[in-house]
Nucleic acid binder design. Structure first.
Lengths: 235, 235
DNA sequence: TAGGATTTGTGCGTATGTATT
DNA sequence: TAATACATACGCACAAATCCT
């Protein structure tokens, strides 16, 4: 060992991860809405790289179902519809319950504080509703939930399914007249979920977290389906 | 529309899938054992392609945990150990039960015949045990099981987890003195599983298939752990 | 219908990192 | 310790496919 490995900006592998997470966030916040066409050259320019590492990231996003590359056309953000997502939601509901059963990990003091911080964030959102901020806080909450199991494959798969579904609320709500009211309602529901989970964690009842989450995910999808009905009644 | 799209050999996308499945099979049959180093150039030559599409396939296998690319070294088949796979098995056990509950699909006559063909294959294996043939038949059975649910994400994820675990039996059994006996026993267990599943299907009791599979996967892992103990007692 | 513009897929040379002698 | 061998990561040029005029 002669000297420190001279870590330049981005370990190469970590740079890819950063780009991956950036693009995923943009897709899930609808900065890139369904149908949006990405161009490899543009992304390469933006991230100061060549097309090769960009293509590596796009390939992963394609394998995960968020993008679809078409030869000669472009790389297109996948569309999402309630019917296809119903399957994903069913699976998410079932997996949610496993968090309390498979290698549960009780959060320490700092962990609990992070849950409390999300709850505070909810309160702020109730005061001043904002769809993007809501979506971000939801992701943060999900990341915290993931810390509650030591089962790595469960975390990985739950994450994948979560990111496949999380765009749908923003998409369906956006085209409804009652958008403002729906957003406020959804934030209230979310706050309730966070509060319920936090209460279970403070009581040390990890098994209950799974049941709580299961119920909330199922109800969330039911509301979504009702909204989709109103948005496109005859479909 | 002027003329038929003139489908050449391999639609491009399908060629990638073929290479992917070929390499995955080799990894799972231990033709490429854990630690084996693949070289992009070799694979490119074998499949009459350049390194680029090969890299696309290797990237996917890396994302799925079967390979690990190390800059300057090579692309290495991941090692597998009981401890890490315990998590995957726990999840597989839980997912198995979902097959009877999430969008179950009753097989038609031809579907049942394919299950019966697997059972016949088991009988042949009992007569003349062969580890590779057993592994292949096991994969075939898994593919049939996957047809029993219409929930695409469930199929996809189950498949992924299956291929992450299926190598382990061949690997642990191979270094045991009682290899021949263990193989015969494992084939007998497998035959029992296929017979049980077939009986449930013939009775039209799809919900039971999940329970049967769940029990067999759990027992299979228990046997595996016992074998691993014998193979490396002090670990 | 044909042709040009544009975009992804492919092929390959070079840079960078690792292991070994 | 330095140098050599060799493999992946990267970047670029070209081929193939699609869309639009």
């Amino acid at each position: 060992m002669t000297s420190a490995p001279q870590r330049r900006r981005g370990d190469g592998r970590q740079r890819l991860l950063r780009i991956y997470e950036t693009l995923r966030l943009r897709i899930c916040l609808l900065d890139y809405p369904p149908g949006h066409r990405l161009r490899e050259a543009d992304l390469a320019a933006e991230f100061a790289a060549s097309r090769t590492p960009i293509r590596r990231v796009l390939a992963r996003l394609e394998d995960e179902g968020l993008l679809r590359s078409v030869h000669g056309v472009g790389t297109i953000v996948t569309d999402i519809d309630i019917a296809a997502l119903a399957e994903v939601y069913e699976l998410r509901v079932a997996l949610a319950e496993l968090y309390g059963r498979l290698a549960p990990v009780a959060p320490d003091g700092a962990g609990l504080d992070r849950f409390r911080a999300v709850l505070s964030g909810c309160d702020a959102l109730v005061e001043r509703p904002d769809a993007r901020a809501f979506a971000r806080l939801n992701m943060e909450f999900f990341a915290l939930i993931a810390t509650l199991t030591a089962n790595a494959p469960l975390r990985q798969i739950s994450e994948r399914l979560y990111y496949q579904t999380t765009r749908i609320w923003l998409k369906t709500a956006a085209r409804l007249a009652a958008y403002e009211r729906l957003l406020a309602e959804e934030i209230a529901h979310f706050r309730r979920e966070v509060a319920d989970v936090l209460a279970a964690l403070e009581a040390g009842d990890l098994a209950n977290v799974g049941a709580i989450r299961r119920a909330h995910i199922a109800m969330s999808f039911a509301r979504l389906r009702a909204q989709a009905e109103r948005a496109a009644p005859g479909e």
